[in-house]
Design a protein around this nucleic acid. Sequence first.
DNA 1: CAATCGTGGTG
DNA 2: TCACCAAGATT
Length: 351
Amino acid sequence: MPAVSKASEVKARLRPALLRWFDLHRRALPWRATRDAYGVWISEVMLQQTQVDRVVGYWTRFLARFPSVEALAAAQLEEVLGLWSGLGYYSRARNLHRAARELVARFEGQLPDSVDALRSLPGFGRYTAGAVASIAFGLPAPLVDGNVARVFSRVLEIEGAPPDRAREKALWAAAEALVEGPRPGDWNQSLMELGATVCTPLRPRCGACPARAVCGALASGRVESLPAPKKPAARKVLELQVAVARRGGAILLARRAEQGLFGGLWELPSTEGRLEALLGRRATIGPELAVLERVLTHRQLVLKLWVATVPARLGPPPEGYLAWRWVPQEETASLGMSSATRAVLERVASG
DNA sequence: CAATCGTGGTG
DNA sequence: TCACCAAGATT
């Protein structure tokens, strides 16, 4: 049976059961204490590819500093990245900031209450537009995230592995068929909550699942094998030479161009080539200090730290950087930096 | 459409 | 130790 017609058959039984379960088991998350569309938006962007527990603190600090679209739009990107520091996928913060400015320019500082208008903003893909539309505005907008995909894969026995086109189509068709009805925002959240806490990738708790009566995979004994795993990402080694230049209580940091890996963030001046070429003739490179490794999704970073002596008066920033300056130790905490850079600073400070 | 873009928890 | 993974978007 096609997944869509199976979905409509399942709908009458699943919808009430899952909404009732959600009313009983929903976690008390800070963004659920508000119906403010802005707060919902920030939470949805932070939650992209990021687990709930990690987001809570970031969301609370972010909302305290930027309580509205206007406050975010008025800020400098650098400060936004400072509050995003350590959360990863920094293009999310850059897009958030751009979108806030577009909202002020085009929508009087209000999030528009339509999926199409939301999708015209930076950082709003199909998922995030559906999430804001349904959760903040109560619109019957479908969404599919990793949790929903897993729940539907199992309940409706949808085959294939991401990013298979037919599978994507079937998932979104099911989401659209099922979201129609009362409480669309709660419905979408109940699916995600179920996926996050019960219908988990490993060792799902089928005995406690409100969908067990209608779950195709449970009936056919395929819960552990659905959905099919996706192929792992290829990881390339990125070896960087890192300049550790200190002067008094300050360290030399440079701000990366606002695109690509770690775009817009501060770091110790680094290059895939030679530090002599990066820093110019007036700098001297001393002994190697240490080697640090960090693993990202698609990269294995190998950071080779070198003592560097750089004249106090800095010229224009090196290739690939927007700025550079001597940063006092105590000021590094508030700068937007990757966790890799934090680790480098930690290593430099301790030895 | 396949690659890019982070991070830390988990088994 | 290491592969796997999490409320995706963009190019």
